[in-house]
Design a protein around this nucleic acid. Structure first.
Lengths: 213, 213
DNA sequence: TAGATTGTTAATCGATTAACAATC
DNA sequence: TAGATTGTTAATCGATTAACAATC
């Protein structure tokens, strides 16, 4: 198969933001938009918008601009939002339950289908209709249900072991909230980190910097 | 005052990760480490590590490497972790309460001092000892308590209005979990976005890409 | 001292911006 | 057709990597 030109993660990181803004324009009833108008709205250069989009296809039309509905759909496809993703959440603590309660994800095809924990008192509980299983039921669950993404919200000490157990089960992607860099033996598994502490520290850095001015 | 050389956000984003790894080394009783050993551990180049650190000072010693404890402390100072940051959380829903329950932040000086919501039934409730106030008590609270960071976890429709109210109150930084790009009239306010949906979409992109191979 | 490893300058690489021909 | 705006090539800018002299 022809090797496609690798698209940089810098570009990929920007795509959800385009998708979001186009969704807002769509809701506002805007039919078409030029890279220039979009650039003003998003505070990026028009040039970057055109470059970014052209990594995935020629979605615009000279003299016209971009059709909002069409571009929104196409970016959705690029991001894989045209298919369903089943998510399990490992760790049914506050963060795990918060994720389970977050309905917005479903709009884009991300469905949480199970929560897992080790605390016996949680067994069988429902969070917004989603069942909490015991961690030792994980293998059985995965045998019967397709799982596309596992979100890790357990303490960092347990993250590596469980992550590799998930990899063994053939789960292709990990959404990691545990405060470690996962060490996976299968490098093909996709990992996306959400390190809230790191984010706070960046914020803190910028506060201190700002106060020096 | 002498204008300091601006440090790129690319560098700033990497600092919390250095801090974390040095913390782990410290706990493991490691006394010193060379950029080369650290680079192997973190999967970055030794050259980048030395460049990054030298933006903030010469923390190492030729022929020796870096003293783990010292470097950890210095990066902590760079990130502003040597001072206390008071955080209020706007929106006492699942995510807001999950943040309030997250004890780890306190270790680095980030203290949540209040939650705010509009639902009357939440008024006066405690989450891990932290009180939930009504949103109309915000001004009074800020008059009596120093607030360094406001975390926004309310629905996106309300985010802009509340964010600008916070800016008016002189709060210097916003940790934004609402799914919008905030439009602030004061550009000096520091904003750090945590867009969970965007993160999921990136993950989704990479899953689809991986499956094509 | 000899060996190790930093701090820093120079070289390379990649990402962003500018420019413009193509074309709707 | 004339005007607008894309898609794409070329130029610039910035970030990463390599190299090495300084020095512990």
């Amino acid at each position: 198969m022809q090797e496609e030109k690798e698209i940089s993660q810098a570009v990929v990181r920007r795509m959800p933001r385009y998708y979001r803004h186009l969704g807002e324009l769509l809701e506002a009833g805007v039919e078409r938009i030029s890279s220039n108008d979009l650039s003003r709205r998003m505070n990026v250069t028009a040039s970057q918008i055109r470059q970014d989009l052209n990594n995935f296809g020629g979605f615009g039309q000279q003299g016209y601009g971009y059709n909002v509905k069409y571009l929104h759909e196409e970016i959705g496809k690029v991001l894989g939002l045209n298919r369903r993703h089943n998510i399990i959440v490992i760790g049914a603590g506050n963060l795990g339950q918060a994720l389970a309660n977050y309905v917005k994800f479903e709009k884009h095809g991300f469905m949480i289908t199970g929560l897992f924990d080790v605390k016996p008192e949680l067994k069988g509980m429902l969070v917004r209709g989603i069942r909490i299983y015991m961690l030792d039921e994980l293998e059985a669950f995965c045998a019967e249900n397709q799982v596309d993404i596992a979100a890790l919200t357990m303490p960092k000490e347990k993250a590596d072991a469980i992550a590799n157990r998930l990899v063994d089960l053939g789960i292709p992607a990990i959404w990691n909230f545990a405060h470690v860099d996962l060490e996976l033996f299968d490098k093909n598994v996709v990992v996306e980190n959400v390190h809230l502490s790191d984010s706070l520290m960046q914020l803190s850095y910028n506060i201190v910097k700002n106060q020096k001015k």
